[in-house]
């Protein structure tokens, strides 16, 4: 069974109106455990929509999406929250840190929602921040940090929960080339430690880090380096 099994998924805005937009127009995609996949496409190609669907941040208009065998479209808000909390670690282009909380508190947040005990939680968060090289920035607020540092806090937040899937949406989009290299190195490390990493990007250079590259254009997959057809997985 595939970890991610997307079958003929559509995401349609303003359906039936003149302004109808098909952000996803019949996408099928299978991703296995421990893969490192890059989804590449130009701006407006539907790659971010695809990521939102994969990450359970959005519900497809039509189609089926099974994550680890569970049909996402049939889950309650509570069950979706649990999946976002336990199964998926997000790394966003805009970092999406909570401005009013310190780096440590931001990293602790998903663990709080999971119900981890405070002592254990603090340890996990500190270790995650140490891992991304921010041991000396734990009590800083996002505003006091550079973009690269903020992105590393976001990565630590994703890491701390040890989720099986890491979803990175243009993680280097707001960073310079040197800090980008650091971030990519962290993603590769997570992959080598056993996480499934899905990277969304418009940059072929960044995508080259991945084992498998999926190209998306106008809401449809136009190329897949693994040539998975969805029929079976080796």
């Amino acid at each position: 069974m595939n970890l991610i099994d997307i079958k003929n998924v559509y995401k349609i805005y303003n359906e039936g109106l003149d302004s109808e937009v098909r952000a996803l127009n019949g996408v099928s995609l299978q991703i296995d455990r421990k893969e490192f996949v890059a989804i590449i496409g130009a701006s407006g190609s539907g790659k971010s929509t695809l990521m939102n669907v994969i990450g359970c941040l959005d519900i497809p208009t039509y189609g089926e999406y099974a994550l680890d065998g569970e049909e996402i479209t049939e889950l309650t808000d509570r069950e979706l929250s649990r999946i976002r909390n336990k199964e998926i670690g997000f790394i966003f282009q805009g970092f999406n840190l909570i401005e009013d909380l310190t780096a440590l508190e931001n990293v602790e947040l998903p663990l709080i929602y999971r119900g981890t005990r405070p002592s254990e939680r603090r340890g996990l968060a500190e270790r995650a921040l140490e891992k991304v090289g921010l041991a000396d920035r734990m009590q800083h607020h996002p505003k006091e940090m550079s973009g690269g540092q903020q992105q590393r806090v976001a990565i630590a937040r994703a890491l701390a929960c040890k989720p099986p899937i890491i979803l990175a949406d243009e993680p280097t989009g707001n960073l310079d080339s040197r800090t980008s290299a650091d971030v990519m190195a962290l993603l590769r490390e997570m992959h080598s430690e056993g996480s499934t990493v899905i990277l969304i990007t418009h940059d072929d250079g960044i995508a080259a880090s991945a084992e498998r590259v999926v190209r998306i254009k106008d809401g449809q997959i136009i190329a897949d380096s693994a040539s998975h057809t969805g029929e079976e997985t080796p």
Binding site: G55, L57, D77, R78, S81, R82, R84, N85, K86, F90, N96, L97, I98, L109, P110, Y113, R114, R157
Partner: peptide
């Protein structure tokens, strides 16, 4: 936006 962030890292609605 803050609520969006909290939801994306697994906060339930009632929380």
């Amino acid at each position: 936006r803050e609520i969006g962030i909290r939801k994306s890292i697994g906060a339930e609605r009632r929380t």
